[in-house]
Computed example of a mutant assay.
Amino acid sequence: MNEPIIVRAVDAITLVGGGDVGADDLEVALRHAPVLVAADGGAAPVVRAGLSPQAVLGDMDSLEAEIRDHIPADRFHPIADQHSTDFDKALRSVAAPFVLGVGFMGRRVDHQLANFNVLVRRAERRCVLIGAHDVVLAAPPEIALELAPGSRVSLFPLAPVEGTSRGLHWPIDGLKMAPGGVIGTSNRVAESHSGRVELTFFAPGMLIILPRAALGAVLAALKPDA
């Protein structure tokens, strides 16, 4: 069954969660994704930054009254579903060229793992999570990234996945990767290569983890016409 879309945006969406939000995270995200949406408790860092979200999505169990008072009532969209996280509720309820998520990494490991799970289950949403040191996304079937030679490229499977690569120091061709089995963390762009990395995956479920400085390269690769 198709999920109802609450926020449709021609521009990309910055989605804010209630986890760690760095001093410049919102500024960086909004530069690329100007439509601001909060997932439940993510409204707090938005308001404290002097901003107002266009919508607040989630079960609304993490919002303080003082935060609510700064946001017009018609921007709250409660989603009553105790079997999913607020990140899941929000991501499945928006439609945009891509989504940048801040406040979904750091603080609690269990929350971060749950958010990674949502990334791969909602991979059609083209969402990139921004952390203090990393950017994380669910791998599409094919992706080409223009990265600096020697730059870190980590691959972590959340399901059994095989694929191919060009431009990695350690190719993944022929590897049967799986959680609890072979993984691909701490790989890197081949120093002898131009910096272009091409990845193909035969099934969904792979996370790509890159340095935060690679955000621009990731967004260029994820553009609908890329």
Rank of each mutant, 00 (worst) to 15 (best):
F76D: 10
F76L: 09
P78A: 02
I79A: 13
A80N: 14
A80Y: 13
A80G: 06
Q82M: 07
Q82Y: 04
Q82E: 14
Q82G: 08
H83I: 02
H83T: 11
H83K: 08
H83A: 12
S84I: 11
F87A: 13
F87S: 11
D88K: 03
D88T: 03
K89E: 01
K89F: 01
L91S: 09
L91P: 06
R92I: 08
R92E: 08
R92M: 10
S93Q: 05
A95F: 03
A95E: 15
A95Q: 15
A96L: 03
P97S: 04
F98K: 07
V99K: 12
V99E: 03
L100R: 06
L100Q: 03
L100D: 02
G101H: 10
G101W: 09
V102T: 07
F104P: 02
M105A: 13
G106W: 02
G106P: 04
R107W: 02
R107Y: 04
V109M: 14
V109L: 15
V109S: 14
D110W: 03
H111I: 05
H111C: 07
Q112V: 07
L113W: 06
L113F: 09
A114N: 10
F116K: 01
N117Q: 15
N117P: 01
N117K: 09
V118M: 07
L119G: 06
V120I: 14
V120T: 13
V120L: 05
R121V: 06
R121F: 07
R121P: 04
R122N: 12
A123C: 02
A123L: 05
E124N: 04
E124I: 00
E124F: 02
R125E: 08
C127T: 13
C127G: 03
C127E: 02
C127K: 09
C127P: 00
G131C: 13
G131Y: 13
V135C: 15
L137I: 10
L137S: 12
L137D: 12
L137E: 09
L137C: 12
A138T: 08
A139G: 08
P141W: 04
E142H: 11
E142P: 00
E142Q: 10
I143Q: 14
A144V: 13
A144H: 07
L145E: 12
A148R: 09
A148L: 03
A148G: 00
A148Q: 07
P149L: 12
P149S: 11
G150S: 11
G150P: 07
S151M: 06
R152I: 10
R152G: 01
R152H: 10
V153C: 05
L155Y: 06
L155T: 07
F156I: 15
P157A: 14
P157D: 15
P157L: 14
L158E: 12
A159G: 06
A159F: 05
P160I: 12
P160L: 14
P160R: 15
V161W: 02
E162K: 06
T164S: 01
T164V: 00
T164H: 00
S165H: 09
S165F: 01
R166H: 15
R166E: 15
R166T: 13
L168C: 08
L168Y: 11
L168T: 08
H169L: 14
W170E: 01
W170M: 01
W170K: 05
W170C: 01
W170L: 01
P171Q: 12
P171K: 05
P171C: 00
P171Y: 02
I172D: 00
G174H: 10
P179M: 11
P179K: 15
G180W: 05
G180H: 07
G181Q: 01
